[in-house]
């Protein structure tokens, strides 16, 4: 039992069960397939923003620009579609913008050795500003052919759920199976050893930031397709959700230690709590307070687990 309490993942599942129990007590609709399947659309969006963040935190960095990148990607999709570019190509352009934005973050952080917190705080403003500027702040309709990505289903499953879950599995598997994974872990725990081991530290870190930009842009597309139009104010405060998910999921902000399964479950918990609070007609301001408290508790809990482990070494 003691061991289980120290196991972050077990605690997450426990919290999830409690949240589910409380929610189903609050609403008769909650434990129905329709409600839950619909909820997975939101869950998938939130967990996707956490995926990129988890990768960046693995290297010991942080990416505050994800929410703004999501908006920029959305606006790019809207504008390119409006210009008559085929939908598939337009989506590809948005993804490329995400990768480029991530590369910019990565270059400034890793090559110029600037603190990630400041760099991505700056690009958070930069990306949002560009998105507002090129769209003029107005909503841009997107072609109906794209609706499928945000509103369609594959069998009974919402498209986002399939895409995000696949992305998580692919990334988690890749991190476990590839050199890239152990390099990121080594860099996160001790960058100097990685340098002395001949690991291409800068390049590997830049790749993590590029992936973060990529997933933020991907989310921008999915989100736009769900709400049927592109707009520059999407994704505000999403960086907060992303960090909460990663840390709640078991990541150490010092780098080296993350859990992809943990991040995924953490996203489920946070979205369910939010939906539950909305169902119970609690204002969004108070919801933010609650999510903020969860973040603090998660960090405290992780520290507690880490201190227990340290003593054993």
């Amino acid at each position: 039992m003691k061991k289980l309490v120290k196991n972050n993942f077990f605690v997450l599942i426990l919290v999830l069960v409690i949240v589910m129990a409380v929610m189903s007590g609050m609403s008769d609709y909650f434990l129905t397939a329709d409600y839950l399947l619909n909820a997975t659309r939101f869950i998938s969006e939130t967990s996707m923003i956490g995926l990129g963040m988890t990768l960046v935190i693995l290297t010991g960095g942080i990416d505050l620009s994800v929410g703004s990148m999501m908006a920029l990607s959305s606006v790019c999709l809207g504008l390119t579609c409006q210009a008559g570019i085929p939908a598939g190509l337009a989506a590809a352009v948005s993804l490329l913008v995400g990768i480029a934005g991530g590369a910019l973050n990565g270059y400034a952080v890793c090559k110029m050795n600037l603190p990630a917190l400041i760099v991505t705080l700056a690009t958070m403003g930069l990306f949002r500003g560009i998105a507002l500027g090129i769209s003029g702040g107005s909503a841009i309709p997107i072609p109906k052919s794209l609706y499928f990505l945000g509103q369609g289903s594959i069998g009974p499953l919402p498209v986002q759920l399939v895409i995000t879950t696949t992305a998580y599995i692919v990334i988690a598997f890749f991190i476990y199976k590839s050199n890239f994974g152990i390099y990121l872990k080594g860099i996160g725990y001790n960058e100097e050893v990685a340098v002395f081991s001949g690991i291409k530290v800068t390049w590997n870190k830049v790749k993590a930031y590029m992936l973060s930009g990529f997933f933020a842009a991907f989310l921008g597309i999915l989100f736009t397709c769900r709400v049927s139009s592109a707009k520059a104010d999407y994704g505000s405060n999403y960086e907060m959700d992303a960090i909460t998910i990663a840390v709640f999921g078991g990541a150490s902000l010092a780098g080296g230690k993350v859990s992809f399964a943990g991040s995924y479950i953490a996203a489920v918990i946070i979205v369910l709590i939010r939906l539950g609070l909305t169902t119970a007609a609690i204002q969004t301001e108070i919801q933010s307070v609650i999510i903020g408290l969860i973040l603090i508790l998660a960090v405290a809990f992780n520290n507690f687990v880490a201190s227990k482990k340290k003593i054993e070494i």
Binding site: S178, N179, G181, G256
Partner: peptide, 24 residues
């Protein structure tokens, strides 16, 4: 790297030789 296993430490630098196309 004190936080990862001795085994992982011992393959860290040799991965380009051991792995194929970046897969361990």
């Amino acid at each position: 790297v004190k936080e990862i296993s001795a085994a992982e430490n011992m393959v860290m630098a040799a991965l380009p030789e051991i792995s194929r196309m970046g897969i361990r």
